[in-house]
Design a protein around this nucleic acid. Sequence first.
DNA 1: CTTGACTCCGTACCTAAGTACGGATTCAAG
DNA 2: CTTGAATCCGTACTTAGGTACGGAGTCAAG
Lengths: 135, 135
Amino acid sequence: MKKHPRGLPIGAFAAAAGVNVETIRFYQRKALLPEPGRSYGSIRRYGEADVARVKFVKSAQRLGFSLQEIAGLLTLDDGTRCDEARVLAEEKLEDVRAKLDDLRRIESVLAQLVDRCCASRGRITCPIIAALHAH
Amino acid sequence: MKKHPRGLPIGAFAAAAGVNVETIRFYQRKALLPEPGRSYGSIRRYGEADVARVKFVKSAQRLGFSLQEIAGLLTLDDGTRCDEARVLAEEKLEDVRAKLDDLRRIESVLAQLVDRCCASRGRITCPIIAALHAH
DNA sequence: CTTGACTCCGTACCTAAGTACGGATTCAAG
DNA sequence: CTTGAATCCGTACTTAGGTACGGAGTCAAG
């Protein structure tokens, strides 16, 4: 493993964070990452804190937060404004539960259709097609 | 209500189907609707079958089918190829169940985080922020 | 025959979260 | 000092499902 005494250049940084170089640049434009210092020239150098930040973003994404919402979470990064973080998490939980309700409804309709379809072998009109015509 | 003896022009058709005029033209480009006849001039005229078709598309969308998948369903529109329709419905059911699994996992994590957050009033480090840093 | 509403058509724009490209620098090794 | 890799930067493209725009043509009523 190579040493990067002045901090990681973008390629090594992206690899360390498990994302694409272009993704780093994209996050930079979205201000999800601070503009890093550019020691000796015009090349950006990143540190461990930046790697942690990208991983934070990816963790939050896995919980369904959008990048915009994650920008909000990142302003609470010092961990001292628990109330605000809880509000964001509660709102997201509501979103997720609403989507769950939708999907459960859809699942039951689809399951019924598949079921009725199986039960109606030889019928002239497919129950699935008929149901889609019915509403 | 006005009569449209030669069939509905696009505006009345879109209204009857409950969608935007632009949506009709978009569906036309996607070949979800057949090119309608243009009697006497260059104006498209639509019939009841077209209205039913748009409603079919909207029903299928509510069940989570993409327009591309709906194009597939529409080729089975005569209702005689029940097996093929069932396969498409089963695949969609699998999709929906996979998404449900994801969301349930997310819900439980979020619910735990909110819970722990509530339990830790006064703590210095917010458990939500800490958890996002942990993975 | 004119006016106003409607339609036609192609094209651009929108969101989200990136990905891809390409010319110009710059860095590091030999 | 040269060469090749990496970086910089702006811009365009991607998917899905539309929405919006604008100029030209057409249709029906008065």
